[in-house]
Simulated assay, not measured.
Amino acid sequence: MYCVKKTDFPVLENLLTACFENDPLYTLLIPDEEIRKKLLPELFKCDLDEFFNTCKVYADSEDMNGIIIVSDETEPFHILRYLISTYYATFKTDCYLIKEDPSLRVLWHFLKGKDYLNSRWTEHIKQKERLHIIYLAVHPLKQHCGISKLLLTEVLDYADAHSLLVSLETHNDKNVAFYQHFGFKLFEVVEKSIHLKQYCMIR
């Protein structure tokens, strides 16, 4: 496992864009393919800036063919720093959305889909002894090479050693069976205003 540095962000922005440009959530939030290709690297840059301050960010190796971002809900955090990071990231995201689409249609889609982006469903779990996997992504050209298993197993071994629950969500029904193979169970399926199913899973 390789601990990601800030200088690695450009590589990871490209990695995440390649992984999620055809994801069901992002194709609904940003229907125009050209706008989506321009926006996603900027949006993932915002995410990485925020998560670098609040989460653990690891890659499979220095080649960074895969990435896993994990929030450790057991760790104490500085509430002011957390709020500043979160609101600043939201502000920057909104600015990017408006810049790329002045009609505000994409911004409106993001506002309608906000519940799919904030893992709010985990409030129903009511357990602080928990890790939450925010992103697990492997470059499309490197998939089916065991990288996802490597990254996920590392996190699950840590969780088992510390008796922690692990939660995640996916918007792709094809991923459900993959996570079930690692012991995850379907907690609930969320479907809200944009008519997309969010599969919420725990282990």
Results as ranks from 00 to 15, higher is better:
Asp72Leu: 13
Cys55Ser: 14
Phe77Trp: 15
Met64Asp: 14
Pro41Lys: 05
Trp108Cys: 02
Leu111Lys: 03
Ser71Asn: 15
Lys45Asp: 14
Glu62Phe: 10
Gly66Asp: 15
Leu12Ala: 04
Leu80Gly: 06
Leu15Cys: 09
Ala18Met: 04
Pro102Val: 10
Leu97Ala: 05
Phe44Tyr: 12
Lys38Glu: 15
Glu21Arg: 00
Leu39Pro: 04
Thr54Asp: 05
Ser85Cys: 12
Lys37Tyr: 08
Glu75Ile: 10
Thr90His: 12
Trp108Ser: 00
Asp47Cys: 06
Tyr26His: 14
Thr90Pro: 00
Cys19Gly: 02
Lys99Cys: 03
Glu13Arg: 01
Asp94Phe: 12
Pro76Ala: 11
Phe20Pro: 02
Cys95Glu: 14
Asp101Val: 10
Lys92Pro: 06
Ala18Glu: 08
Tyr96Ile: 07
Asp60Arg: 02
Pro102Lys: 04
Asn53Ser: 06
Leu83Thr: 08
Leu43Gly: 11
Arg36Leu: 07
Leu83Val: 08
Lys45Arg: 08
Glu21Tyr: 00
Ser103Cys: 08
Ser71Val: 12
Val57Gln: 09
Val106Lys: 00
Tyr58Ala: 09
Tyr58Trp: 07
Ser71Pro: 01
Lys38Thr: 12
Leu12Tyr: 06
Phe51Leu: 10
Leu39His: 07
Tyr88Lys: 14
Ala18Asn: 09
Leu107His: 03
Glu62Asn: 12
Tyr26Gln: 07
Phe52Asn: 06
Ala18Thr: 07
Leu83Gly: 05
Asp101Cys: 13
Lys99Ser: 05
Lys112Asn: 05
Leu29Ala: 03
Asn22Trp: 00
Thr93Gly: 15
Thr93Asp: 07
Asp23Thr: 03
Glu21Asp: 07
Cys46Ser: 07
Phe52Thr: 05
Ile79Cys: 06
Met64His: 09
Lys37Asp: 05
Val11Thr: 13
Ser61Trp: 00
Pro31Glu: 10
Asp63Phe: 12
Trp108His: 06
Glu75Asn: 15
Tyr58Val: 09
Thr17Ser: 04
Phe110Ile: 00
Leu16Cys: 06
Leu15Pro: 09
Lys56Pro: 02
Leu111Ser: 01
Met64Ala: 10
Cys46Gly: 06
Leu40Trp: 11
